[in-house]
Simulated scan of single mutants.
Amino acid sequence: MQFYRATSFLFPHSLRRRLFALCLVTTHMPLLGYIGWGLATGRIAWAECIILILATMAGAAGALIGIGALLDPIHALVDARDEGDAPRPERGGTPTLPTVGDIIARLFAGMSRAAHPAREIDERNIAAQEDPLTGIANRRGFLAQLDTLPHARRRGCIAIIDIDHFKQVNDQLGHDGGDHVLGDFAARLSSQTRRIDLIGRWGGEEFAIFYQDAIEDEASWSLARMADRMRQEPVGRVNGQPISFSAGLCAWRGGPVTAAIAQAEEALHRAKRSGRDQIRRAERPSTQAYG
């Protein structure tokens, strides 16, 4: 793009003429050098010089014909833009070369997408499964990660976590402050879990963790350690008190994950009804075999 702008003094309103000028100069540079050397030394052979001039002009003409053919799709896009199929410049403005450059970029992007359709689909799928605010998986992504686990790895503990009094967080810190708290809390979860554990934003101020190959005591200890750090190094304060969280925990032994999640949510509700800032385990862990 810098070179594109640096050549704007050459026919600033015609990309085709600019390319013609550059092509003509660059293809004749060796010939001009030969003529200059011949004139300086007195050893110029005019017959060979004329042949070289004709050959160079033929090569330049061929290059220009090829460039013209390559520019035809771009000019078609320009025509479509002028007819209203693409965004117009502001009223009263005149088309400039950066506008043509935008068209070239769009054309290249379209060719790249056509060459890599599978990659574009994968990128869309990843974006659909990622929470844009926190950068971790959303509910759909979290469940998709669970679904891709081998059967032997679908065992551990499911935790559903809720930030306490989050309405007050938004009321006192504003929605931007609330978003900041959510982002910091997601980062805190990521930093205090193992690489094999799965983390997702379940929705709103709720998060989910799958502690892979962990028993309830291990998962409960991990959550208690997070809660203690939240008190010592809070992600924010409400009414002068550190922001805390409540959590419900349920063992998952390979049965339907929806049943384990439902029991973890029920345990979370008991923790909130009991005063918040605590961890409760499901009363009846999911023990049904996967199948």
Rank of each mutant, 00 (worst) to 15 (best):
A224N: 12
I243P: 00
R237S: 11
A267P: 11
I161F: 07
I104G: 03
I65D: 05
T193K: 01
A21P: 00
G36E: 05
E218I: 12
Q129L: 14
R188F: 13
M29D: 02
I74W: 05
I121Y: 03
L143Y: 11
G101R: 12
D184T: 05
P95C: 03
V100L: 11
H13Y: 11
I209D: 02
D131I: 01
L198N: 00
G110D: 08
S274I: 01
A208H: 00
A271F: 04
A127Y: 03
E48A: 04
R17A: 12
G141L: 03
D171F: 06
I243H: 02
G84F: 07
A224M: 09
I279T: 10
R273S: 07
Q232L: 14
A267M: 10
D79H: 05
S220H: 11
D72Y: 07
A187F: 02
L173Y: 06
E216W: 02
G59S: 09
F11I: 02
M57V: 09
G177K: 07
G204W: 02
D147F: 10
G110A: 13
D122N: 04
L173Q: 12
L32Q: 08
R16D: 08
Y4H: 08
G203I: 10
A127R: 13
H180Y: 10
E130N: 07
H28W: 11
F207M: 06
G275W: 09
L223M: 12
G177C: 08
W46D: 08
K272L: 06
S246L: 06
S286K: 01
E123S: 11
F108P: 00
W221Q: 15
S191Y: 03
L39I: 12
T26I: 15
V78H: 05
Q172T: 14
D85Y: 14
T258K: 05
A247T: 09
D197E: 02
R280H: 14
G42E: 09
R273D: 11
I104Y: 10
R154I: 03
G203Q: 10
G141A: 06
R106T: 10
R195W: 01
F210V: 08
I160S: 04
I67G: 01
I50R: 00
I53T: 04
P30T: 15
I279G: 03
P87G: 08
G174N: 09
I126W: 01
A260N: 05
R153A: 15
G59K: 04
E83I: 06
R194A: 08
V238A: 04
R270G: 01
A289T: 13
D102L: 11
L107I: 01
A69T: 09
T99D: 14
L24S: 08
P256G: 03
A144F: 04
A6H: 06
G93N: 14
V181F: 04
R270Q: 10
I158N: 04
M57Q: 09
V235N: 01
P98C: 13
R231C: 08
G204Y: 02
G38T: 07
L24N: 02
D184E: 14
G36W: 11
M29H: 02
